[in-house]
């Protein structure tokens, strides 16, 4: 095993790439959960976004169009969840699971003709002078646009939730939907919009996997990324910057284990591949127990049905 082959600079740069799909999906889910809705269909929306984006990017030759299509695809699929849970008052856990199962099937169906094709490359932003800086250059100034977009999204989400009226309404709906309803806010409408935003973000995250990170289409390629995003929201205690931290932690573990595999570490490949999932579980345990109790931060109406009966 040759540890010196692992360069910390490249590791951090790769970590940011590995974390980006998780950041996108987790921020989307954070907004959904802040509105009091638990959508367990993140995995299904991600993989649908992955194939929508991939197909459109391949057909049109433009990654940008692909990402837009992925966001639309994820949002449309999430609308299915929204209509079922908000108008048909179905159980959110069951419907979210259904969305994941359906999304996995649908994406495999749509992706039939796209296996083994290479998508158009998502170009990197190479800021002339800055990217030459040792260490910081490759990390901060030589990534593709989506990485910056994800970071921007985190900041924007934080700002909107903390400072804007829209954020306040969103939080009110999530904390106490009856009170929000009594104040005249359209609970169902707010929640539907949040759900669609979540779907669009998850779709983007999926497309980043199929268009930039891997870049290829294979069935079931998200491999649990959607579920990890859900776990990261809990880890982040429903706070955007902590979600970012969680996603980087996860990205770090993923990249490190890949590097260890490449360096020929003395641990079987399968056990290294398990490690991101195990660490996610460990982190969940730490966050949900003891003093750190993340659950105290959970929106009070999370997962509860709203039906304006009067």
């Amino acid at each position: 095993m040759d540890l010196s082959a692992i360069s910390p600079t490249l590791l951090i740069a790769a970590l940011m790439v590995a974390a980006t799909p998780i950041i996108l999906a987790a921020i989307g889910e954070l907004i959904v959960e802040k509105a009091g809705v638990l959508n367990l269909g993140v995995e299904g929306m991600m993989i649908t976004g992955a194939i929508c984006g991939f197909a459109i990017a391949v057909e049109s030759g433009s990654p940008l169009l692909g990402f837009i299509a992925a966001a639309v695809g994820g949002a449309v699929l999430s609308l299915l969840f929204g209509v079922l849970t908000q108008y048909f008052l179905s159980n959110q856990v069951a419907t979210g699971l259904g969305l994941t199962l359906f999304g996995l099937g649908l994406s495999a169906l749509m992706g039939q003709g796209y296996i083994g094709i290479r998508p158009p490359t998502t170009s990197k932003v190479d800021i002339p002078v800055l990217s030459e800086i040792p260490v910081l250059g490759p990390i901060l100034f030589n990534q593709d646009l989506v990485v910056y977009f994800a970071l921007l999204l985190v900041v924007a989400t934080w700002a909107v939730l903390k400072f804007s009226r829209a954020g306040l309404i969103l939080r009110a709906v999530g904390e106490n939907h009856d009170a929000a309803h009594a104040l005249g806010y359209k609970v169902v409408r707010v929640r539907l919009m949040a759900i669609m935003f979540g779907g669009a973000c998850a779709g983007l995250g999926g497309a980043y996997l199929s268009l930039a990170r891997v870049p290829q289409w294979t069935e079931g390629m998200t491999a649990g990324a959607g579920w990890i995003a859900l776990a990261i929201v809990v880890f982040g205690a429903w706070r955007p910057f902590r979600v970012l931290l969680g996603a980087y932690l996860f990205g770090g573990v993923t990249v490190l284990q890949l590097n260890l595999q490449a360096a020929g570490a003395n641990i079987p490949v399968e056990y290294l591949s398990m490690s991101p999932y195990l660490i996610t579980i460990a982190v969940l345990v730490i966050m949900s127990s003891g003093k750190a109790k993340a659950a105290l931060n959970a929106p009070a109406c999370l997962g509860r049905q709203f039906h304006a009966s009067s």
């Binding site: 008052l89 179905s90 069951a94 419907t95 199962l101 099937g105």
Partner: peptide, 26 residues
């Protein structure tokens, strides 16, 4: 018929089930 079509079909079944379930409770 592609194998994935059946998977989507099964997912659809769950959706319709959850949707019509509203008639049981409402």
């Amino acid at each position: 018929l592609p194998a994935a079509a059946i998977q989507a079909f099964q997912g659809m079944l769950l959706f319709f089930l959850l949707a019509v379930d509203v008639l049981t409770n409402y």
